[in-house]
Design a protein around this nucleic acid. Sequence first.
RNA 1: GUGGUCGUAGCUCAAUGGUAGAGCACCGGGUUGUGGUCCCGGCGGUUGUGGGUUCGAGCCCCAUCGACCACCCCA
Length: 457
Amino acid sequence: MNKKPSSKGKINQPRLVRGMKDILPSESNYWEHIRKVTERLAQDHGFSFAATPILEDKNLFVRSIGETTDIVEKEMFSFVDQGGDTLVLRPENTASIVRAYIEHGWVNLPQPVKVWYWGSMFRRERPQAGRYREFHQFGFETLGDGQPVNDAQLIMLAYNFFLDLKLDVSLQINSLGTKESREKYKKVLAEYYKSHKRKLCDDCKKRLLKNPLRLLDCKEEQCAELAIDAPQIIDYLSEEDTHHFTQVLEYLDELELPYSLNPRIMRGLDYYSRTAFEIWPNEEPGARQSALGGGGRYDGLAELLGGRPTPAAGFAVGIERVIALLRERQVYIPGPDTPDIFLAQLGDASRRRALKLFDELRLAGFTVAESFSKDSIKQQLEVANRLNISITLILGQKEIIDGTILFRDMESGTQEVVNYDKVIQELSKRIDKVRNHNDIKITRSENPIPREDENNE
RNA sequence: GUGGUCGUAGCUCAAUGGUAGAGCACCGGGUUGUGGUCCCGGCGGUUGUGGGUUCGAGCCCCAUCGACCACCCCA
């Protein structure tokens, strides 16, 4: 073989780490739009922004999410740092928010404390489309108040988020009761399945021992049939839990917000109690079904983390999954505004002047595009054309000497000589400055998306 | 973590085991100060990586990495 390692070529070119993804400028309109919609919703509903560190003590999640959950058992990026601390890249944000609540004495603020967050989460799973090892979530949490109206407000907020994005989604809701009633239910469920053990698939036989709740959403035909007649958690709720759940549903009815009662919504994190919900895309039958967001009530979490009893509820939404759905459904997403004008320059003297003029125009309130590094007028007009700009200002040697500047109408191609000192005045005449600054208009759709709710199981 | 499909230019894709190509995009030119169409040119790949078989491998075999799909679970 005459292949020899060459000094040329991309040897050991650094590449993206498995499961990681670059967010490219070409998709920035999605990210910026979703962020704006979220900020607007937060403001409208009285939620303040909070950010917690990406790095946390491993113990925070072991105690909150639960030692035997998949997330904690095998999906956390975990390492011991130089100081000997066991740290993890956060797999979710709720536990951190509750930690912050306890640590900073938010109990002394007017209750409930309502915060929202936005950031990277990490789970070391096998990557797939819509499932990355680093992914982004935003979430809303209402802490310090156990009233069902909080649950309903959060659900309304989550639902409105998708309405604002023109995404047709379905709300799946369930009540998990308290830890005690859930334990009772688990036993009854396990009994039921034990009596049908022979019909279960191999996976389910394992689930029977480890986590009977998971038996309910097995997709094997035999198991799915068994699930239909399985006892439902609703029947094992305490009177208070039932009452709470009923009230939440009443609020949703009042809002005319469609939901499906889904006894299979269990959530993968141990800290949930009472209300649990997920948001699914409404797909044609057979299409893949992965949650866009989910949440619920977690009244016991603060105590697990050493705080005093603090009822709380919240939800999180997966941004990559939302973007994937927006793409798939080809939902129109507004891009950045077209700049008001393009500023073209020719020659060194005018280039110097142009940079200064750019700044003056910006201060006068115009958005200006340029291509300062290009020399030829031809190339600059090409850029202006590509940007779909209607007026180009041309400043060349001749104009510098004459104290003028050219106004070029890009549509007609006609040009006009304007006194340099009157640039801003002339521009104001031509450009309607009563622009609405690209504000997101939150429009509630008149008719909620019709759908048949209640699954008939 | 288990099983499956697939890796060729920035993107979309070609190339009966016999010299790696096209379109798009990007950069430049079509006489020195004028865009959208058109014409011409340029940049860009040791075919994901490493081995093996062969006179000869993008193509066949093995390994490895990665993406995707189905599980598992979830955002």
